Simulated assay, not measured.
Amino acid sequence: MLTCDPHSLARAAEALPCLPLQPSFYAAVLQQPLSSEEVSRNEAWCCRPLSANATENCFIWLIRLGVLRREVDGQGLTSRVRLTPMGNQLLKRWPQGWPPASPWQRLRHGIRRRWPRL
């Protein structure tokens, strides 16, 4: 089993419940690559309606956290994303979905997302 840096894993684990993407999204992206347009059209994957641009912003943050990666084809990077081994590890940690985020976790995540160097 592949293990990830504990600090990175803890940071990503704290972020997942704070983001508007449901555990069903992560299970789907484990099976096949998905684009922001596909995700924004599927209401079962989002906690609230998201535009393709807002979904893409979530993707970018999840890529920075190490949970997602861009799909690569013969011509380079695509608009689709896949789950990384660390993302898979987090998904296995909570097979029934993760616990809801506390207000403190949401505040910390919001600060980290807007000022990631702090």
Rank of each mutant, 00 (worst) to 15 (best):
W94A: 04
R117A: 11
G76A: 12
Q96D: 15
E38M: 14
E71N: 13
H7T: 13
A15F: 05
A28E: 12
N57T: 11
A12E: 03
L9H: 14
E71Q: 13
Q89I: 07
L91A: 10
C58R: 00
G87L: 01
F25T: 01
L62Y: 03
A52G: 11
V29M: 06
H109S: 06
H109I: 00
K92P: 02
S35F: 05
L2A: 14
A13S: 15
R82L: 15
S8H: 13
P23F: 03
W45K: 00
L50K: 00
L9P: 01
G76C: 11
E71L: 10
I111R: 09
G87F: 01
T55D: 04
T78K: 11
Q22I: 00
A12I: 04
I60W: 09
Q31N: 10
A52T: 11
L2C: 09
E56L: 14
W61P: 02
A101N: 06
L68A: 03
R48Y: 13
S51N: 09
L19Y: 09
P99S: 06
W104Y: 09
W61E: 14
R11S: 15
P103F: 03
Q22A: 08
S51I: 07
Q22W: 05
C58G: 01
E38C: 07
V81P: 00
P23C: 04
W94R: 02
P103M: 03
W61A: 07
L30N: 12
W94V: 02
C47W: 12
E71I: 02
V39W: 02
R64D: 15
S35H: 03
R93S: 12
S35D: 08
L107M: 11
M1I: 10
R93D: 08
L30A: 14
Q75T: 15
R117S: 13
V29E: 01
G110L: 06
A44H: 12
L34I: 05
E71G: 07
R113M: 11
G66A: 05
R106N: 07
E71K: 11
R117M: 09
R93L: 14
N42Q: 14
R48C: 10
D5M: 09
C46F: 02
Q32N: 09
C58K: 00
I60Y: 09
P95D: 03
L68M: 12
A44T: 10
H109F: 11
P95Q: 04
P20F: 04
L83V: 04
C58S: 06
A54Y: 09
L68K: 01
D73V: 08
T84E: 04
L83I: 08
G87D: 00
R117H: 10
R113P: 03
L16Y: 05
E14A: 15
A15C: 11
V29A: 07
L77A: 14
H109L: 03
A13V: 07
Q89Y: 06
G74K: 09
Q96L: 12
R11N: 12
L91C: 10
S79N: 14
V67I: 13
L65F: 07
P6W: 06
